[in-house]
Design a protein around this nucleic acid. Structure first.
Lengths: 209, 209
DNA sequence: CAAATTTAATTAAACGTTTGTTTAATTTGC
DNA sequence: GCAAATTAAACAAACGTTTAATTAAATTTG
């Protein structure tokens, strides 16, 4: 990559970062191009120049950070038993959700919209792929008598649901955890607590010895 | 209540219903007063006439259906042991979330906004109250050796998280459950499945005999 | 290697729409 | 006939986008 390309990519990436933050905070419609431009310290016309339109900027923001199923598969292939695979998924998901919680806010807001846009479909498919991987791991674990028989689909949803509500409902989670501090809530300490809890929950639920 | 008041209330309620549906589908900013008016078959000016502004209409929509903590308390007071209380809460929450899932979509979208509005604060407080009730039930159950020792706050979040992701992420949940039909997803049958799953999960997790 | 030329990046201003809200006139129900 | 309900029209403000002009950078040329 030449140096000028890097500079342009930096600027593009900067706009994407700013836009992601604002979209996550307020939602797509609530954020104006003028607001993004001001926050990113660029001219209003630059968004159209780089991305074509506000809609396409949004698409770029979303697609940039989707958790690919390849990543998950690659991450768990090193483990042999289903328990280790499942726990690795818990770690990975928690890490990714904590790291990209702005993105997760956007993604699940999009999922809450009933109207099927092309992008909503894209996200749903991606999430479904990730669901399927976790589903298969649990299914295999049950088959090999490593896990008890459970409602597999809802178990998958449980994992995602907890991590999701933790990372995307911070005002109320803050209150519940009595932290009053969002920084603390997303600290290493609390991330460990969440991971530990999830593994204990799954251990109990799946009857892991 | 006089007959004309009833008619006015009906019209107000009708606007609230339509607005709730649209707000849940698209979010506050994405819905215009013109769209609401068209869908509700009223004049544009009637929203201002009845509610004052779009903002106040939104407030009216949200506050109308918040699950009051009194309702929960009243619902569980008839039960003696913590297990029965907890299972009653599972039933109540599932029912309410299924019944008012439009509302839940709006509420958690508001919670995902980082900017603290007056209404976000109101919702957070309400949710926190509900959290606290569940929290207390589990805490008491542990104290009385009815439950195993667990991370109580995260257990509460688990219950809410599962019901929430089920009711407010229907596109992806549909795919996961292989129903392809949103009606089926919110049928009695599937509601029972969810309740049963939650109780089994809690039974395993809390070591209920 | 500097000057000339072309391309890319950036800007301020203006575009036509749409937004939420208000006004002032009209209709409705009692 | 009077008050409440309803309407169409108009309001300024904000929206996403485009334009045409300008600056900066890259490339070509002599």
């Amino acid at each position: 990559m030449s140096s000028e390309e890097k500079i342009q990519n930096d600027k593009r990436a900067h706009i994407l970062d700013v836009a992601e933050y604002l979209f996550a905070q307020q939602g797509f419609e609530a954020v104006s191009i003028r607001e993004i431009s001001k926050a990113a310290d660029i001219n209003i016309a630059m968004v159209s120049y780089y991305f074509g339109s506000k809609e396409k900027l949004y698409e770029a923001v979303v697609t940039r950070k989707l958790i690919s199923s390849e990543l998950i598969l690659h991450y768990i292939e090193r483990y042999n038993c289903s328990t280790d695979k499942l726990f690795a998924i818990v770690d990975l998901l928690t890490d990714k959700f904590f790291e990209h919680r702005n993105m997760q806010t956007i993604i699940f807001r999009e999922m809450a919209m009933e109207q099927r846009t092309a992008m909503a479909e894209l996200i749903a498919n991606q999430l479904h792929q990730n669901f399927t991987i976790i589903n298969d791991v649990i299914q295999k674990g049950i088959k090999q008598k490593e896990f008890k028989k459970v409602d597999v689909e809802l178990t998958v949803m449980t994992i995602i649901g907890i991590v999701k509500i933790y990372t995307t409902s911070s005002p109320v989670v803050c209150k519940v955890l009595k932290t009053e501090d969002k920084e603390l809530m997303f600290s290493k300490q609390y991330k460990l607590r969440l991971k530990k809890y999830l593994k204990e929950l799954l251990t109990n639920h799946l009857g892991i010895k």
